[in-house]
Design a protein around this nucleic acid. Sequence first.
DNA 1: CTGTTAGCGCTTTCAT
DNA 2: ATGAAAGCGCTAACAG
Lengths: 335, 335
Amino acid sequence: VSILAVAREAGVSVATVSRVFNMPDKVSPETRKRVEAVARRIGWLPNASARTLRTQKSRVLGIVLPTLLNPVFAECLQGLALEAARRGYAIVPVTTEYELAREASAVAGLQAASVDGMVLVVSNPARSAALRRLREAGLPYVLAYNRHRTHPCVGVDGEQAVAEVVARLASLGHRRIAMVTGQLAVSDRAQQRHRGYLAGIQAAGQRPLVLEIPFVDANLDALSRLLGRAQAPTALVCSNDLLALRSIRAATQSGLRVPADLSVIGFDGIALGSDLPQQLGSVVQPNALIGQTAATLLIDALERRAVPTAADSRTLPWTLRLGETCAAPARVAGP
Amino acid sequence: VSILAVAREAGVSVATVSRVFNMPDKVSPETRKRVEAVARRIGWLPNASARTLRTQKSRVLGIVLPTLLNPVFAECLQGLALEAARRGYAIVPVTTEYELAREASAVAGLQAASVDGMVLVVSNPARSAALRRLREAGLPYVLAYNRHRTHPCVGVDGEQAVAEVVARLASLGHRRIAMVTGQLAVSDRAQQRHRGYLAGIQAAGQRPLVLEIPFVDANLDALSRLLGRAQAPTALVCSNDLLALRSIRAATQSGLRVPADLSVIGFDGIALGSDLPQQLGSVVQPNALIGQTAATLLIDALERRAVPTAADSRTLPWTLRLGETCAAPARVAGP
DNA sequence: CTGTTAGCGCTTTCAT
DNA sequence: ATGAAAGCGCTAACAG
């Protein structure tokens, strides 16, 4: 079932059938109707591979992200997918499971799949072999959540946000504010937020206390120990919502009440956070919008036959939600 | 940069280059090494579109699901994606946002994209135009979460599971067990679970009480009213975890304690449920495994040049987790 | 407004 | 073990 069948059946040439689907205004209305009717009747749709081979554009976007198990990325992908669909693009998502090696192979795979462009969330834009490769190949791409001077990026200013979080907690009366973060080495987002924490702590004239949780599937024993000791922190700034949720669980199991004994705030603003019995405090990012904006940027560039550059980067606004897991400390530390 | 460049550079014909990548054993080791070296050096990879056009297989799987915002489907997609990647297939996910019309257009779009097969989560297999179309076209597909006699399906027995849930709650002493469900009309999963509830209630000799929440973005006022009245239920069986979470929030805001005043159990076993301060009771489905199994079934069939049929369907085991949101009722109802 | 035709990059007979 | 050549289905000059 090819274009030829339609052409024959409609009594026209293949060129005309092609025009009906690509430049409808260049075909007389009657012919067009006839062709469309035949196509519908025999259930013909232009073959995407043939079209891609001929035009050298696939209308497919490759998406590289760490995982779908963190709702942040699922929400982002959803926004991205919707926008892509709206503009007639398909997406091929690939997850890297936070493994650097997979970043490179994901990009290679997508390149072989002839994607027109890519949206990626990488571990660290500064030292990403995958990005270098993309740039050299001249393949259009946009980063999401990452931030870097020389790459086109869509995200929020995490550093400023976390500094603000610390300031707010301090103004609530917290004098011992700790940070709980995932592995700093594998994520420039975590690093960004960490810098914000340090800046905030310094501005508040306090001492920093950072707990780095080694694995993706976080083991929180260290946190429980920290919370158990004298002069334990009264507030926890977590570098993402999943970590915040787990921290709250660990605290609760250690007999602490949240937020009376311990305030906890996360980062990301995953939708679920608002549905919990205790609304999760968080730096709320517009995740779907980040995805959507990345898609828009990329597709706009594609249609201009251009490549997005650092100048196209967008910094989107975040909002601070203290939720129901943050409050003034019940017992203020003595002098 | 095409196969011809590699051929010339390596001093062989294009056929030989092709063989190196498709039937390596049919090429002498020296030639092979030389060709591989050249390909690597000039960064050549076989063009997927050309290959697809020629072989009529794309090694792409279309995935149709309601949304990525419900972690159930994100988890499933993750499992599916990993398995597909392992076997050398790419995936193109499309979300329907629970709109029937989008189901059909998603399938049409994927068909045009020449996918080799599809995995779908549809609203209702029995009356799905999309499925009819697929079957007529002879395109291989597998359903996930859906259950139907005449289609290949991967999922759990939700009916049995919910009946068991009701039995367990009854044996804990609950005498007024209500069900909270999403729109029954748009989901055969919800219907399945609803039937299980009715069966369980009947077996327990109790009166059913079903609250159907009208919208995807659930408005829970009706639930709050229900919980406020005399002889309110002491246990809630929710047709999914998201609904359970929201129900717990509504209950908590009405001043009820969970589980002392009200037990709540969900369905799906989303990973997040275990990270909450109160572990969410749930019928735990192996979501990633469901995705993985669907992928395996589909790909196995593809490689056999066959179409999966109802006979290939798999019913996977669920586990019942009462979590920390279910307990014996604090005050047993008087006679 | 419509038709003819070359060729996108690859795989696969069929020869050698 | 290797090469020559046909053709997958489509689009875009170009010609009329």
